[in-house]
Design a protein around this nucleic acid. Sequence first.
DNA 1: CCAAAAGTGTTACAATTACACCCATGA
DNA 2: TCATGGGTGTAATTGTAACACTTTTGG
Lengths: 243, 243
Amino acid sequence: MEKINHKITRQPELHHDRHEVLLKNINTHAIEIDHHMKVTLSVDCVIFGFDEHELKILLIRSDLDEYKNKWTLLGDLVDLNEDPDEAAYRILNMRTGLKDVYLEQVHTFGRPHRHPAGRVVSIAYYSLVNIEKCKITTQAHELHWHPVKDIRQMAFDHRQIFDTCFRRLQQAVLERHVGFNLLPAKFSLRRLQNVYEAILGKELDRRNFRKKILAMDILEDLDELEADVQHRPGKLYRFKKIN
Amino acid sequence: MEKINHKITRQPELHHDRHEVLLKNINTHAIEIDHHMKVTLSVDCVIFGFDEHELKILLIRSDLDEYKNKWTLLGDLVDLNEDPDEAAYRILNMRTGLKDVYLEQVHTFGRPHRHPAGRVVSIAYYSLVNIEKCKITTQAHELHWHPVKDIRQMAFDHRQIFDTCFRRLQQAVLERHVGFNLLPAKFSLRRLQNVYEAILGKELDRRNFRKKILAMDILEDLDELEADVQHRPGKLYRFKKIN
DNA sequence: CCAAAAGTGTTACAATTACACCCATGA
DNA sequence: TCATGGGTGTAATTGTAACACTTTTGG
């Protein structure tokens, strides 16, 4: 129910039986929004990139004294007239220079004291980007790609957010094959397999992998070959447009 | 990033290149929370119950003129010092009298104009309850169980929220077998199968279903039989405690 | 004894896994 | 010609799907 009636939980004498309380208030039409009930809304993005054989995420050093030397996810406040999805796109674009990236909402973190500056509720997204296309001026800004396997402590509850998003990515790569989004438009099957292996954290059988992906009929053979490799070059594919 | 620095997106002369803007602000330590950036936070619950052979959800009639005669999910504002998960539990307990219910966060809906009273961002949960144990005084409060198959229009974006939660439940019943939570402690395999069929919206083969569930080794045979049925009674089981 | 649902096993089919050899390229 | 990874097929296993008859109970 979207009824905005903060008084329900504010009448101390009624706290012992909330069930009754709410029933009494159902038809009050009280939709005034109490300013004391407002929270600061932020968005945090776990931005995944795939660099050679490694899965990485983009992190920045915390600018809070309290969390000095800890890494944080990239995030920002949601503007008053902004859809949270748009806010996530904005952050992504600001930080990587990219548009049309893969982005998925994962979970909202709202523990009362998760942020030292006050009540900040954060909607977590993960994003998959082509790391080569990211325009990141890495020196001096403390903005870096971190191998996922090296992630330890992070500021705030960002380690928990990362874990949640990473688990979601592992599901998604199997169920919806979102892994393509980490690669350039043209890629070899070997590179695609590397993506799956990096995300799932285990090796896959090459023949079975190729069979499975090709059977899904989502790849288009470009009749091109890899260049600049010192071995037999692999065929290049691209993700099939949906009809 | 959890840095609270609303100015980033408020400097008009810099809007054309947000990438640069943010980089400049990274080390400002500006964590003041601007009150204009606050939103009202609510929680909405899709409360599922299973009645005989039918999946139902608990709805209440909207108390906004604008949405008169439309049905809404059960929800409330999140209190200032309240974890959103707790708020969802609170709503559930208020509305059904139940504790220890199954509850899962699904998605956060925050389109700027989704609520007529202002900027209300809602975290959606779904919940699975034993419908027989719910203490709902149904008359006069416009609080009713609605068959899922009859759901049409709803107030606000609640139809979308419902759809999202229902899809999630369909996944969850296959992947994590959450369906038990809709039944009493003791149940027959037939009743469990009815739950799966109602959620998935299709009939299942009885023998294959029994084989699969029993092979999972999560049921304990109670050596009891159904009573009050006018046919051969089925065995009763309960969900195995985890070790 | 009839109606209604419980209980049970086998076979076909699909999906997944394991596994080894030849091929094309650059150095 | 050698080192490196690309490319390919088959057999075994596992999981899923299809399917029919006997049993127990209440009426």
